[in-house]
């Protein structure tokens, strides 16, 4: 076997010199030019690949955000709707807050009008002193079949209300037919 044969230190030195001849196996300048060129393009490709990876992660986050945004928006709309309904005093059984000094009707803007298909008219409280703190529309609501209230919402504090109803006459048959309810139509829009 090769390993069993001992070599002298001189042999070892000659072997070292022989091996070191391999140091002379150096590529020429053209090789390095080509090497640098290839390495540069590989380096750029590596950078691009890295960006693509981040982009992919980024896109994933955007996708998740978009999907959750739709769900969030839906939930928000539902929550807002529930909140609005629960805050409506007439449906919740509460009393509207009124202020006797605010008699000016609030007219809806063009945007509001375009968004509403239902006939809407605004009534103004004629007797703010008497009914400033307590406005009871229950008799109006129950006064069928004279009119049907589709919606009654507080438009602004204190005494202006929007009533979505048809027809636009206000009567309270169960009290006294033709009784002035202390309100008058001061403005309508949409179909009225």
């Amino acid at each position: 076997m090769l390993f069993k044969k001992r070599f002298s230190p001189k042999d070892d030195e000659r072997l070292s010199h022989l091996i070191q001849l391999k140091r002379q196996e150096k590529p020429d300048e053209a090789f390095w030019l080509r090497f640098d060129e290839e390495l540069r393009s590989k380096q750029l490709a590596a950078i691009v690949r890295t960006q693509s990876w981040y982009e992919r992660v980024g896109k994933l986050f955007i996708l998740i955000a978009r999907k959750s945004a739709a769900a969030t928006a839906t939930a928000s709309i539902l929550a807002f709707g529930i909140f609005t309904i629960s805050e409506t005093d007439y449906f919740a059984g509460g009393e509207p807050t009124t202020s006797p000094n605010q008699n000016e009707p609030v007219h809806p803007t063009e945007d509001d009008a375009s968004a509403i298909d239902q006939p809407i008219f605004v009534v103004d409280d004629l007797h703010p002193q008497a009914e400033a703190n307590e406005v009871d529309f229950s008799y109006g609501i129950n006064a069928t079949p004279s009119y049907e209230i589709n919606a009654l919402t507080k438009k602004s504090i204190p005494v202006n209300y929007q009533i979505i109803a048809e027809p636009k006459q206000f009567t309270a048959d169960h009290i006294n037919s033709g009784t002035d309810l202390g309100a008058k139509v001061i403005g309508t829009w949409s179909h009225f």
Partner: peptide, 16 residues
Amino acid sequence: YYAKQSLQGELKDYIR
């Protein structure tokens, strides 16, 4: 050590 031993065997024609 063992690498050199092996190489010496392979390259004995050049180093003796």
